[in-house]
Amino acid sequence: MTEMFKSVVVTLSALAIPALLLFFLVYGAFRKVPVYETAVEGAKEGFSIAVRIIPYLVLMLVAIAVFRASGAMDILIAGIRPATDLLGLPAEVLPMVLMRPLSGSGSLGVMTDIMKTYGPDSLIGVLSSTLYGSTETTFYVLAVYFGAVGVRKTRHALPAGLFADLIAVLAALVVVRAIM
């Protein structure tokens, strides 16, 4: 069952992009759209959007880098550890939980490190890779997406995103404990 699901998903993700390109463009041509000229018009926007997010991306990544390099993470982990111990969350995955919303490369490093130290098939290994897979780098996404449209007042986007991350951690803990 899992195998079948996996092969379907793998096939889908391999075919998705070529199929999408083919379908969109052929449908456009069928509808008498001048496909090349239209695509060029749209592509021109790519530059301005990418350039527009630069200041947001720079400032967000710098703040995260300063925080990471200072080693403040270790202190934070020591601080919230009593609470996570109560939940039954292994202390070894705490760096993963805290790093994931902040930094993609940072959390990838943490995950690789955990795999090396505790083995990929241990509870800690499965849990940390599940965590990596099931949440996004919330801060990065918010900075980039809001930066692209010049939104400065982000309202409840961050609390909602972090709440979802928290639920992902709890759900991952329950599910992984159930199968191991």
Binding site: L20, L21, F24, L25, Y27, G28, F30, R31, V33, V35, T38, A39, V40, E41, G42, A43, K44, E45, G46, F47, I49
Partner: peptide, 13 residues
């Protein structure tokens, strides 16, 4: 640029 170009075609059609 690639995807916004394709999206524009999809929009126009």
């Amino acid at each position: 640029a690639l995807w916004l170009g394709v999206m524009r075609v999809a929009e126009a059609s």
